[in-house]
Design a protein around this nucleic acid. Structure first.
Length: 199
DNA sequence: CAGAAGATCATCT
DNA sequence: GATGATCTTCTGT
C-alpha cells in the first residue's frame, strides 16, 4: 500500500473529505496493525461556525492551521479522542473529521480494545474508531495536541492513510454547517438516523 | 477564577 | 428519546 501524498491534502477541504471515502486508515502500535476503510467523514472549513478554528487559532486547534497531511487529534467530553486530517493551505484552518471506518484487518486487536462491542460498532463513530485504532497520547506518545502525528506523507511515520480507490457512491448532507459524506449503503457509518438524514 | 459547552458514547426506558 | 459520564478548553469577569 502507498501513502497518500501531501498534495492529496493540499486541496479544498470538501474535496479532500469526499476523496477520503474508501481510503484506508492504518495504525500500528508495536507489532499490532489495524486497518480500516473510511466510510464516513465530515469537512470543517474556514468559514464554518462549527469548526474549532472559527474564532481563530488557539492552543488546541493550532494543528488545523498547520501544513496539510498532518493529524489534528483532540480530546472531548472528558473521555473521547477524535481524529482529523488537516487540509488546504498552511495558515488556513481546515480539517476532515474521520467519523467511521469499516474494519479490514486487526479485528482481534480492535475487539480487545473495545471489549463486549459488536464487530459492527467497533469503529462506527469518530470516538469509537480512535479507541479501536488506539489513536491517542497513551499509544502514540507524540504530542498530538501539536499535530506532531502525521498521516500520509511518504516519510517513515506511525500513521498512514493509504490509497485505495473510493468505492461505491457518495452521499452528502449539509448540517447547516459542516459537510458530511458517507459511503452509500454502508452498514458501518455512525448511526441509522444519520444515514436516513443523508437520504 | 468560575462557568459553560462540547465535531460523543453507552445505557436505560 | 433521554441521561450521565467526565474533564478540557475557551470565554468572560
Amino acid at each position: 500500500m502507498r501513502s497518500l501524498a501531501r498534495a492529496f491534502y493540499h486541496r479544498d477541504v470538501v474535496t479532500v473529505a469526499r476523496d477520503l471515502l474508501g481510503c484506508v486508515l492504518v495504525h500500528e502500535v508495536g507489532d499490532v496493525r489495524v486497518v480500516g476503510s473510511i466510510v464516513e467523514v465530515e469537512a470543517y472549513g474556514q468559514d464554518d461556525p462549527a469548526s474549532h478554528a472559527y474564532r481563530g487559532m488557539t492552543a488546541r486547534n493550532a494543528p488545523m492551521f498547520g501544513p496539510p497531511g498532518h493529524a489534528y487529534v483532540y480530546f472531548t467530553y472528558g473521555m473521547h479522542h477524535c481524529l482529523n486530517a488537516v487540509t488546504g493551505e498552511e495558515g488556513t484552518p481546515a480539517a476532515v473529521l474521520i467519523r467511521a471506518v469499516e474494519p479490514i484487518e486487526g479485528l482481534e486487536a480492535m475487539r480487545a480494545r473495545r471489549p463486549g462491542i459488536r464487530d459492527r460498532d467497533l469503529a462506527r463513530g469518530p470516538a469509537r474508531l480512535t479507541k479501536a485504532f488506539a489513536v491517542g497520547p497513551e499509544h502514540d506518545g507524540a504530542d498530538l495536541s501539536m499535530g506532531a502525528l502525521t498521516i500520509a506523507m511518504g516519510e517513515r511515520l506511525a500513521h498512514d492513510a493509504v490509497v485505495a480507490t473510493p468505492r461505491i457512491g457518495i452521499d452528502a448532507a449539509q448540517d447547516g454547517r459542516a459537510w458530511r459524506f458517507a459511503v452509500r449503503g454502508s452498514e458501518w457509518v455512525s448511526g441509522p438516523r444519520r444515514l436516513e438524514a443523508m437520504g
